[in-house]
């Protein structure tokens, strides 16, 4: 379990807070989606969670240890895959040989399976790969480390269309009851079926945190003809097929989450959406 307590951070004394008084508990066995507009502090939150930045106030506690201490136990349990990274000019096999021994729960079989799913050979030269291929290889490595906290920043950026489905498959296959995976992304369509919970940041603050099952239990998402918009609609936006709507789901009918629509609804009608979510 990871406890985030009153986290506040700014990139300078005179600069505005990027993260402000954020408190949250992350439970193992869940895949979290971290959503928010540009500049709302998603990457900063990742850096704070991994101890790469020190908060001005508050703390992040992982397994009863403050992550800023950068203790060995903590580092062996966290892996962050940034959006942009320097892939070294060595073969992937060599990269694994040099880095895997540092992760006590590294799973070589898992790595092999992931690489096979992405159709990448193990002896591939990292230097010769395209950005998307590098991302796939590093993603496989990240999933195989066996760390209890895995932070993926825009993991589907640069991936081709078939690889996005493979991404969802390998992430699901690497999930277990001890693990927390947080995916920060703007490509919500790529991950919306994957997420167990959603964290939404707005104006440097935690705007919403909840289970995707709770959202779909209370809200329905649909695209209807513009003339048939339900009277109970909470939020609507026109699209090419008609009007996309969010409306209450009082019967708790099974419905498919539209994360983009939910995000927009929560941004435009926060009070109304929250009222239905708490109902």
């Amino acid at each position: 379990m990871i406890k985030i307590e009153n986290l506040t951070f700014a990139y300078g004394k005179k600069k505005p807070n990027v993260i402000e008084d954020l408190s949250l508990t992350l439970h193992p066995g869940a895949i979290y989606g971290l959503l928010g507009k540009n500049g709302t502090g998603k990457s900063t939150l990742f850096y704070l969670l991994s101890g790469l930045l020190f908060p001005d106030k508050g703390k992040v506690i992982m397994n009863d240890i403050n992550v800023t201490k950068r203790q060995l136990d903590t580092l062996q349990d966290i892996y962050i895959l940034p959006e942009e990274f320097d892939a070294p000019k060595i073969s992937f096999e060599k990269y694994v040989r040099l880095h895997a021994p540092l992760y006590p729960r590294f799973d070589h079989e898992q790595l092999g399976r992931c690489m096979a799913e992405f159709e990448l050979p193990m002896d591939v030269d990292l230097k010769s790969l395209s950005m998307g291929q590098k991302k796939k290889a590093m993603l496989c490595f990240a999933l195989a480390t066996g760390t209890r906290l895995l932070l993926l920043d825009e993991p589907t950026n640069g991936l081709d269309i078939p690889s996005k489905a493979v991404f969802r498959r390998v992430v699901t296959s690497c999930m277990n009851d001890e693990r927390i995976i947080i995916i920060s992304t703007h490509q919500v369509r790529d991950v919306e079926y994957l997420l167990d919970r959603v964290i939404l940041l707005k104006n440097s603050k935690l705007h919403y945190e909840g289970a995707t099952a709770d959202i779909t239990e209370r809200l329905s998402f649909a695209v209807v003809p513009t003339s048939d918009v339900p009277s109970t609609v909470i939020y609507q936006e026109p699209n090419l097929a008609g009007t996309a709507v969010v409306y209450p789901n009082p019967g708790g009918e099974e419905t498919v989450l539209n994360l983009e629509l939910f995000f927009n609804a929560l941004s435009v009608q926060p009070d109304l959406v929250e009222r239905y979510l708490k109902a």
Binding site: L52, Q71, I80, D86
Partner: peptide
Amino acid sequence: TKQKRVHQLMLPAT
């Protein structure tokens, strides 16, 4: 560089 710092600081070693 930022990328190098991420790599170095996150390496599981004391």
